[in-house]
Structure formats: structure tokens, C-alpha cells
Design a protein around this nucleic acid. Sequence first.
RNA 1: GCUGCCGUAGCUCAGUGGUAGAGCACUCCCUUGGUAAGGGAGAGGUCCUGAGUUCAAUCCUCAGCGGCAGCACCA
Length: 662
Amino acid sequence: MSEISLSFPDGSKRSFKKGLTGRELAASISKSLAKKAVALSLDGRLADLADPIEADASVRIITRTDPEALELIRHDCAHVMAEAVQGLWPGTQVTIGPVIENGFFYDFAKDEPFHPDDLARIEARMHEIIKRDAPFTKEVWSRDEAKSFFRKKGELFKVELVDAIPEGEDVKIYKQGEWLDLCRGPHMTSTGQIGRAFKLTRFAGSYWRGDAQGARLQRIYGTAWASEGELATYLKQIEEAEKRDHRKLGREMDLFHFQEEGPGVVFWHPKGWELFQSLINYMRRRQNAVGYREVNGPQMLDKSLWETSGHWEWFRENMFAAQSAGDEAEDKRVFAIKPMNCPGHVQIFKHGLRSYRELPYRIAEFGAVHRYEPSGALHGLMRVRGFTQDDAHVFCTEEQLADECFKMNDLILSIYHDFGFDQIVVKLSTRPDKRVGSDAAWDRAEETMSQVLNQIAERSGGKIKTGINPGEGAFYGPKFEYVLRDAIGRDWQCGTIQVDFNLPERFGAFYIDADGEKKTPVMIHRAIFGSMERFTGILLESTAGHLPLWLAPQQVMVCTIVSDADAYADSVLAVVHRAGLRATVDLRNEKINYKVREHSLAKVPVLLVVGKREADEGTVSVRRLGSQQQQVMPLAEAIAALAQEAEPPDLRRRRELAATAA
RNA sequence: GCUGCCGUAGCUCAGUGGUAGAGCACUCCCUUGGUAAGGGAGAGGUCCUGAGUUCAAUCCUCAGCGGCAGCACCA
């Protein structure tokens, strides 16, 4: 008879007999706690209340309102959903049903597809099961027992799952009333603890073990919370995120459109293109300032070039090819429309003899590339088949590599900061299974990059988080991926730095070193926005269309209240234009309410409203987007303030720097 | 690409086996109105495309194209 010592959250310690269960522990503290307890935290890991505690540990009784309980609620909810589905459609096989962010899903194998109305039926059945409040009980079975049980039931996916459980781990079965499931656990004590705050949100196809060649399954997603209030808040958030959908904003702000004849390619309207160009102009200034020179490579090139680069071999299925359309054309060659800019840039580097004195050789291109993306992947501006990369390639020596990476890193972080993105994660993606080049070259590249990665984290003083994505590198080299978090907490991978020991060699690129010998340079691929289209979409969603003044395609709208002010409005517009602001005037025969509403919906950041009074006094009434108020100011004063605000951040820094130098 | 859902006016969406409707937007008229929709009239559609079933298809069936959600993919 041995004792164990358990420490509690308040720091106290008490001895108990070994093998005491969580439930007994809770009861020993207080009756009410025993009633509220749903699980036990053992050294930070969740466990069933029925589990015996076998060793010293720090313990905490988890109640339904603890944050940890949320995971249990969701997991239990997934089980209840599985029971509901099997109850409604006997013969349906259950596979896996994990907890995910905000909820859970369960994958089913069922011949007949679910119908949208089924969600409500399943939900109703789930409420019944929860109301029944059957306890969750755990049993440990032998492998053979479990396999023959599931095989007899026709649950072949479960049989496979039993086989996948590592040796030495128990095969655990959780029962809730009559229904049971193979499960790692833990669970709460009964279905009633799930509560009512859940909702099935959607269903979708999926694959067994995520393998597109494998069996097709049907997935049902749900969300679950500790209280109905939290559920309502979550559903509200989803609604808010939908309002920010860049496809919707693009329409409302008249920025771009898509149409059937061009799946995955963008029609940019005047205002959208203005925004797009503002971004390009900004990027161009930033990179020119640190030694990049802009180039432009051809839109399509003979496929042999893509064979040399390896793209034809690895990505042929995702490339567009073009040929003369004329039957009589003498040139029958197949050209590939470029999916990347690097082979073009290597040709530019290769043209003429390069000296080591020219390195690092930095060239940049706003390169329009086309990729045949799977139709199901297309999504507004976020995933398209034709897009513009803010691409650059740096040819340098191996010794210069780390320093170039740091310079790129500084540039990237500084640029993200200008857009208000300060929560950045840098991830190192290492060699994939399918790759070119020797292991020795990959070793060197990965070694250098992991050192750089550590230093990036160090230099930022812990502000920049880092991580590793094993096996996610490009086929020609490892890469850094810059993931930024937007205003509503979503993460987007934008920038990338890729170290490449392979392409220069495949293309036979070289420079003459100080010793007069030919040497192969290292190549770094980098992008900061990544895709201009996608970054535009991210900006729109992050700002909900309320772009900062320097980026807004239409910065100012001059609105008249009465037609007597038309002439004054025109003169205001002229002054606004002279200050370099993008503006138009609205002289329409409409009430001011109407104009304010319309331009607010179109997300115009500044409305300058003028009536008789303003015309007489030489003032404007300034109304900012998102504000109910307005401010009457002398025209010159208003324009000066707006012009200053509309200055791009890099130009402002440059001006301020020049002022201090002078 | 896979699974499911969807495709009707510029936008958002009703609707019917007998070739169509609303609101907003658009044009014109009245209105000169002080910060998120003033009133009236008008114009606008090959109901995604093709084939089939039917006396008759926007509607039913099949195929294609496109879109949405999720999965898979993302040099």
C-alpha cells in the first residue's frame, strides 16, 4: 500500500493512496467540485476522471468552464455526431473525428451523399443523445478483440486504425450508452456535459488519410462551445469575416472582376489597377534603394529551357504551353508560358561574362506568371492562374549567402511593418522527397539557412517567431516562408527566400573569380508580397476595404450639397489634384445623404462636402470614412493635412531623413 | 482534380412544364435638399452552353463550362 503526493494549483500538496481516481480526488475536495468536474489535468495532460492516478503529479480538476474543457466538449460532440449519423443511416462507417480550431469534424464512409437538410436532422438527433446523458465509459481491449469486433460490424476503417496504433499503446474503447468508438480519449463523464452550444456548419468531401488516391469520405464540420453566448459570438465572427471577403469588397469598391472565359485570371478595373500600381511603385522604390535593378523577361520561352530548369519534369501538369495557332506556321516548337521568372533571370545573368566584382548581382521583376492551378484551388485573388510576382534573384558567392539573407530579411520585415503587419513567423522548409541536386549541396544550404534562421529570431529580440516545415522545400532548394498575421488574426504566407545551389549549375551559369577561375554562383530567389494579386486581397480583407490613405485608389470625393456650389466644387477639385491626391467630384442632382451613403459604401476615405456656406467662406466640410462626424476647415489647411497623410511611408522617411541631414 | 451544392437583369435574389418577376444600380423628369437611400416614369434578360425526354423545357435527364464550401494540390 503506497502513497502518492499530489500538488494542487494553489501550491499545496497532499498525500493520497496510489490508484485514486480523479473522481475520488474531486470528491475529497468538495462535493460541488465533484459534481462539476469533467476531467483531470495530470501534469498538464488531460485524463479521464475515472483514470487511477499512479504516481506523484501536479493535478487540477477540470470543470466545464475551464479553457481545457473546450477540447473535450468538441471531441465529445464529434462522438455524439458519429452516433447520430450511424443511428440515422445504419451501415455508415465512421473513420476519424478530431478536434480542430473552433470545432470538430468527423469523416464518414457512406454510399449516399449527405443532403444539406441532413445537418438539421443530425443536430436534432445529437440533442436527443445529449439529453439522454449516458456516461462515457472506457474499456481497454486486446488488438485482436477490437479488430474482430470492428470487422464483424463492417467497420473496416476502424480495423485499419487499430492496426495503426503503435505497439505498447492501449487499444481504448469509449462507450456512450449503446454506442462505442475506438478513441484515444479522454472524454468528459457523460454526454449531457456537452450542452447545447454547438452547430453543424457544413459538409464536404475528404479523403481517407488525406490521400487523393485513397477512399473518398464525407466530412461533416461542426463548431462547439462551452456556452451559447460563445457560440453566438463565434457565429457572429464568421459573419464579420464574410463581410470582409475581398471578392465582395472588390465588387463594391469597383476594383476588379472575374468572368467565365477567364477562370482564375483577373480583370483589373481602373481603381483596382491604381491600387495595384501603388503597391508596385512602393516595392520598386524599396528594392531599388537597396541595390536591386529591375528587368523584364519574356512571357514565354521554348520548352527546352524549362526542361533544363527541371520545371517541365516536376510541374508540367501545371504549366500552360503555347504554339502558333496557324496551320501553316513554320515554327512548330512548343513554348511554355512562364510559371516562374528564374530561368529568364538566369539567362540575363549568363549573358556576357560576369566578374566576381559584380556579385551580389541583384535583379528584380514584377513578373506576370501563369500556372494551371487545379480548378478547385481557385479562390478570388488569393489563388489565381495568372498573377504578378514581386520576384527577385540574387546571384552571389556562398560566402555572401548569409549576409544576403539577412539583408532580405530586414527588407521584408520593414516592408511588412509599413503595412501594419508586425506579427511575423519565419518558417524554414527543408528538402522534399522529390528534388534535384546532391545531398551534399542540400546539407550546405540547410545548414546555412538554419543558422540564419536562428539569428533572425535572436536579432528580433524574440519578436519574430520561427519554425520548421520538414520536407516542404522547393525542388531546387530549401526556403524561408514569411507568414504574417492580419487584423482579424488570420495567417498568410507571403514572402519567401529560397536558396538554390542547383539551377545555376543546371543552366551552366558562372562568373570569373578573383583567381581567374570559373565559379558557379549561388542563387537566391525571393519575393516579398509573393503574389501582387494575393497581397491585394489580403490587404482588402485585413483592412475591410478601409485602405490607408496612401493606398486608396480614390482618396477624395468632392460632393456638392446644392448646385450653386458646383463651380466652387470644381475649384476645390483642382486644388486637390494639384496637391497630388486622387480625387473626383460628385455634382449629381442627389441629396447629400445619398452621396455620403454611396461613397461610404464604396470606401472612399475622404469626403469633402461643399455647400453654399463653404463656397462663401472658402472652406470644406471633411468627413472621414468610418466617422459620423465632420469638420469644417479652410480649404488650404485641409488639403495640406491630407497631402501629408497620403505620403507613402518610405517617401516620408526619406524626406524626414533629408531634412535632418540638411 | 475529388465530393456536395449552385448558375434567372450590372448586383442581391424570388419564381413556374405553356418563352419571366422584385429591390438596388442605370436613363429621363420633378425636386436644390446640410452629412448613410426624396418622388415619379423608363429602359434592361438566348433564365450558363449543348444534347435528350415532351405537343411544349428557364424548370425534368445527361454531358460540358463556370462559381461556392471542404478535401487534395501550391515551383
